[in-house]
Amino acid sequence: MAAKSEPIATEQVAAHPRAGQVRLVLLVIALAALLAAPLFLYPIFLMKLLAFALFASAFNLLLGYTGLLSFGHAAFFGGAAYFTAHAVKVWGWSPEAGILLGVLGAAALGLVMGAIAIRRQGIYFAMITLALSQMFFFFCLQAPFTHGEDGIQSVPRGHLFGVIDLNQPLNMYYFVLAVFVIGLLIIWRFVNSPFGMILKSIRENESRAISLGYSVQHYKLGAFVMSAALAGLAGGVKALIFQFATLTDVTWQMSGEVILMTLLGGIGTLFGPIVGSGLVVTLQNVLATSDFPVTIITGLVFMVCVLLFRRGIVGEFCATKLGKMLGFRTEN
């Protein structure tokens, strides 16, 4: 994504020697806040936040760390929601098995869509993923198991591993929180693995990565499938949170929403998508009661982000003196 952007004059600020400890403390505070949050805020809202934060982080894995803009991630998110909801409701599977099916289904879908889409680069990649996800949308509209416009309703949450009753809001919340943390750990590990380094090299200079002997197509496809699977994890969990799966989650508007969350928070930052999704979900909740269309705001925020601060909120913070002293690195 950074291929042609203008060089930003960066002031060299060395990280403070104790920056690592400060970051650790901040992380612990954030985790403690998440653990205590349901005491103060509505659990469903918090769970929605976490599900979308995971979805946006999965998307960022592709855009931020591989430089591929997918305009079709709703297919994985909404598709997995359908798979999980169907398995749990119709087949009577346990919640963990249902979510696993959602993840595997999204990964399989990602493999097919990715294999077609990586045949073109850049802007074409975006258009192809958009078209393929729209195709999946029409499939969901017509396939009998999705129940068309009605969606799959009253999906039972069931008992996790047969013992933990997920119908208890707090149990459900801590389950979702655990999935979220595990998902983020996977992303963090993936990005910092040798595989992730190669992805970054592809993002920075694809031709050079090819000349160094890497089979770029395989790495791109790997990243695509990984991102799709994690988006599926978020989608499967969302189906259990709201206890339904609908067409809304497979529309292109949803694909656009996740792009906005990532862009607003900061492309290529670990925490950007979380901040971005928090803002977007909160905004939607605030506007849900009025008849003012959310799309006007999201559209304008999109335009402002692209025109004025492309690094996003977290990206801009990382670029400040304080951010650098704390040792945050920006990816673009």
Binding site: G256, T295, G299, F302
Partner: peptide, 9 residues
Amino acid sequence: LFTFGLALA
């Protein structure tokens, strides 16, 4: 992305 936002607005 810009024109997408424009379309939404």
